[in-house]
Simulated assay, not measured.
Amino acid sequence: MLRRSVLLLALLLSGAVQAEPFVLGTSNQAALARHAPLPTPQADATGSGLRLSLDWTNEFVLDQRGTEALLLDGETLRLNLAARWNWRGWLLGAELPVLNTSGGVLDSPIESWHQFFGLPNGNREDEPRKQYRDVYQRNGQTLLDLDSGKTGIGDARLSLARCGAAGCWRGLLQLPTGDAERLMGGGLGGALWYERPYAFAAGGAWSGALAAGVAAVRADGPLQDQQRQFIPFGWASLGYQLLARLELGAQFYLHGPLYSDSELAALRRPGGQLAFGLRYRPTPQTSLWLGAQEDPIIESSPDFSIHLAVDWH
């Protein structure tokens, strides 16, 4: 089994590179992950453009172990504008998100979805629907207690990349422009990673990308004393060109734990996000994206996210 996996990885890495392989621009949208400079997957190695994306996320975590108790219950709309420029062979980028947190409207559909497929609800039925509530208690102290949503900016990001025939080295600087006390961000840090687009054959129907790197962060906020400073991460995507303008695909994003010194699964576990989606190209310069994201590693990522995006090249 190990030998077959190594051979498959070698095949991917040696395959022909496609200019725009299938990559979903999604990552961990959890409330307690917004401080971390985890990069948004991308595989653009060609030039200038704009991307407008919307992530609609529903999150519910209810856990108590030892002297710790955590409740995360709410929805987030994250609107992100990103721009990129090609300057003398370097790819420069900047992005700024706007966040809206609230009780939302997805609780009932998600409960029905879980019930239909026989999936666990995680005690969702024990809490009021359309509720916004974030509470963390530790050793008899309440470190986090939010009961109303907010609209505001998140953490701004600047990026730099250098791409060659094999792949891209990418770097990210995150600025703490978000409100750390309201879980809107507040993390000063950066990330460095290598991304390798691939295709099984030149001009073939299958494409994707592999990436791996590490992030470093120092953030304020209610849980600042438990935040990990260094976070490894990576992702793998695979897409299939079904029609001339339509591609379908999947992506798995994995990162290390964001917190330490905790028995709660939401804090001590690594995060994993499995996304499925499609890309439609009405013109050669425009891409429309639609995706959905789930949490195969439960509680360390939100239950469900919807991803919408448009790219202009």
Score class of each variant (00 low, 15 high):
229 Q>K: 12
298 I>Q: 14
86 N>K: 11
100 N>E: 07
182 R>T: 14
82 A>T: 11
115 Q>V: 00
304 F>P: 07
274 L>G: 03
123 N>V: 05
93 G>I: 10
191 A>N: 01
273 Q>E: 15
237 S>F: 09
13 L>H: 07
191 A>P: 02
190 G>S: 03
50 L>Y: 10
150 K>Q: 14
58 N>T: 14
21 P>G: 03
273 Q>L: 13
98 V>R: 06
70 L>A: 08
311 D>K: 04
169 W>I: 15
205 A>Y: 06
79 L>N: 11
210 L>A: 00
176 P>H: 04
226 Q>R: 09
127 E>N: 12
196 R>W: 10
89 G>R: 01
234 G>T: 10
154 G>C: 03
41 P>N: 05
120 P>G: 00
18 Q>E: 11
166 A>D: 03
7 L>P: 05
35 H>T: 11
195 E>F: 09
182 R>D: 07
206 W>V: 14
91 L>Y: 12
24 L>Y: 04
39 P>I: 15
252 F>Q: 14
178 G>T: 06
24 L>K: 03
299 E>G: 00
235 W>M: 06
88 R>T: 07
90 W>M: 12
209 A>V: 11
92 L>A: 06
256 G>D: 10
124 R>P: 10
158 L>R: 02
23 V>D: 00
221 G>P: 04
192 L>C: 02
254 L>W: 08
246 L>P: 13
193 W>A: 13
233 F>A: 05
221 G>I: 13
96 L>S: 05
15 G>V: 07
250 A>G: 11
307 H>R: 10
166 A>L: 05
130 K>A: 02
310 V>K: 04
244 A>I: 09
199 A>M: 09
212 A>L: 15
24 L>S: 03
229 Q>P: 11
243 L>D: 10
197 P>W: 01
59 E>D: 00
236 A>G: 15
53 S>V: 14
286 T>Q: 01
298 I>E: 15
106 L>V: 06
120 P>F: 02
15 G>E: 11
170 R>F: 13
238 L>Y: 03
256 G>V: 05
288 L>Y: 01
43 A>P: 03
111 E>P: 06
104 G>K: 07
280 Y>P: 08
56 W>N: 12
10 A>G: 14
113 W>F: 15
28 N>Y: 09
291 G>N: 04
181 E>K: 15
275 A>W: 11
11 L>K: 08
264 L>H: 02
184 M>A: 12
280 Y>K: 05
292 A>Y: 09
202 A>Y: 03
201 A>S: 15
72 L>H: 04
26 T>H: 14
249 G>P: 11
307 H>N: 06
305 S>F: 07
31 A>P: 00
27 S>E: 09
65 R>W: 03
164 G>I: 08
214 V>H: 06
223 L>Y: 01
298 I>F: 13
142 T>C: 02
95 E>H: 06
19 A>P: 14
257 P>Q: 01
157 R>C: 13
288 L>H: 01
224 Q>Y: 13
